[in-house]
Amino acid sequence: MSVGSGESGWRTLARMGRPRATKANALAAVLAAALGFAMVTQVHQNRSSGLDNLSQDDLVALLDGEAQQAVRLGHESDTLTYTRDQLRGSSGDQAALSAAQQRLTQLGILAGTLPAKGPGIRVTVADPKAGVQSANLLDAVEELRDAGAEAIQVNSVRVVASTYFSTGSDNRLQVDGTAISPPYVLLAIGDPHTMSTAMAIPGGVVSTLRQLGATTVVTSSTAVSVSALRARSGDRYAQPDTTSTG
């Protein structure tokens, strides 16, 4: 330490700092300029670049963080999508309700609790010789069902799945225990052409009835009204099985 006083230090600095036109001084200036340039450039680079200056470990950690964030957001998105679908399901409920309503109507027609009308045929069986048996009526009904009849009525009795034909003690035909008398009128809603063809096939209902001495008239109509109703009765034993589907 050759410096004795404060002035000496500053003076030394000033003396050394005096411009000297030496080659080395110029070179030092160039180097200093390069240093300044490099410093500013580096600072600028450091500020402008985002991930470039991070190490591999930092990048891996960053990637992990991003992945976890993505997973979390994915879960959130799923939840929100589910909720949205639930909320949007109000219209789906509407569709399900109308479908259920439609199905209820169909089942009502099948079960005979609802009146039905539509295109169909009217089969009128005149039985002057009283030769028609309950089996013949059953055959006729089965034939109509095979031909696609959706609603059938015999005289004033609606034909449903559990309908039975029998003969009463007075030799009158009975449908579901209700005595009916000739002429027997079967009303069937369905495709008129198919059903009338089914009635008229050789060896079928009409020819069999003719052999029994009955005359059968089949008329097609675009508007047959099956208006006989059947009382709604709950099943006593059979309950809907909700545990299994199909």
Binding site: G17, R18, P19, R20, N25, A26, A28, A29, V30, L31, A32, A33, A34, L35, G36, F37, A38, M39, V40, T41, Q42, H44, Q45, N46, D52, N53
Partner: peptide, 30 residues
């Protein structure tokens, strides 16, 4: 004095030019 002026000149030059550091130089410049 002259080197100090050179330093300041270099700083100003860098400030105005805003050069990009070439990729091969990036690990070594700092």
């Amino acid at each position: 004095m002259i080197p100090a002026l050179g330093l300041i000149g270099g700083l100003l030059l860098g400030l105005f030019l805003h050069p990009d550091v070439p990729l091969w130089l990036q690990p070594y410049l700092p």
